[in-house]
Design a protein around this nucleic acid. Structure first.
Lengths: 199, 199
DNA sequence: TATCCCATGTAAGCAGTTACATGATTCA
DNA sequence: TGAATCATGTAACTGCTTACATGGGATA
């Protein structure tokens, strides 16, 4: 249900087409919740069938149709119900830590490559989230600006504060992963030194 | 492919039945990679069809059969190939941080409940991982003890060090999530104070 | 004789991925 | 006229969840 909630969250800022939403998912929100276009269009259809959104159909050329989705009252309520409901957690399924637990079975160089890839991956994620944070602080994230435009001015501080809070959490997680993998590289070096001394 | 790798990692320590594996997945390994029994049995069948494991069939009563799975050479190679291959990362899909980004839409009490649930969830995970770490340090984790029994003594230090490394990373992540949610609770209080002062 | 643990699965369904497929508009 | 961007999807498949289903052996 999180894809649905993410779509509603975006559409509550203002009506958008599937294509517009897809662009958002490849930028800002996409760094918190990823969704492919092949998932977005069918989900919007389903949400329209369930009355959470309505499609305003615009003709495009001879046969083409562009559908601008608007959130209905039911959709608004569904989003708020999700926001006010207790969170659901998935069971842990962490491929990197699973592999780390058996790193003695890997070639030392493969172990190092893995840890360097981990650092690279999380460094990239961190740069995305730090980038988002900079846009939040500078108030030049288009979605946030639109969001503030439809928000009571007394709620601006809160709106900004929670965006910042969310991205700071993700950034902290990325930094923790990077530090862990760096510690891992030191561990590999230390253990390999130990082995070569004994041999 | 990670479920498969986790199963091979466990079976490399020693042959086991689906039921034995399932118990492991509800304990130690299960806190890194979760798998349900309804997933384990079919996966073992598929792995047997592909020659990664062989089932030693033991009769159980009149009609019952107990299958003890052994890793084949092909299975061993598949595991090592996975260990030496570059990791694959899934795109971010983080329901908690998605929700956090829109917390201004939640009732303040629902926001607090959400953050407290987050703390509770990660505190539980942390206790599992700290527990595993204690078993690693005390050398009383049965799987680790069996693992060491089939491992050259010169590799004992590395085997233990990587287990510790993996669980320390998970524990660090849990602590980071808890600190983040605690900061969130302070943020909610600060923002709500601001609102009540203005009203 | 009841309960707990041992032991094995199937079936339906959901969420997400990958690959495929088409066509319009705009601008250089 | 060609490329980039706008715009919308379907189909097959994988991985995982939830619910259902059965039965043996040991012990209290």
């Amino acid at each position: 249900m999180s894809l649905r909630s993410a779509l509603l969250a975006l559409l509550r800022v203002g009506p958008m087409s599937g294509y517009d939403l897809q662009k958002q998912f490849s930028q800002s929100v996409g760094h918190v919740w990823h969704a492919a276009d092949s998932q977005i269009y069918p989900e919007l259809r389903k949400m329209a069938n369930e009355g959470l959104v309505v499609a305003e159909e615009q003709p495009r050329g001879e046969r083409g149709v562009r559908r601008i989705y608007h959130v209905t009252d039911a959709g608004d309520q569904a989003f708020l119900a999700w926001m006010n409901s207790p969170p659901e957690y998935q069971r842990t399924r962490d491929a990197a830590h699973l592999r780390a637990a058996y790193l003695e079975s890997a070639e030392p160089d493969a172990a190092r490559s893995f840890l360097r890839a981990h650092i690279e991956h999380w460094t990239y994620e961190l740069s995305c989230w730090d980038g988002e944070l900079a846009h939040i602080e500078a108030l030049d994230n288009p979605m946030l600006v639109n969001r503030l435009r439809v928000t009571d001015e007394r709620d601006h501080e809160r709106t900004i504060a929670y965006k910042r809070f969310a991205y700071e959490g993700l950034a902290a997680r990325a930094r923790s992963e990077i530090a862990w993998a760096q510690h891992g590289l030191e561990t590999v070096d230390r253990l390999e030194r130990g082995r070569s001394e004994r041999s």
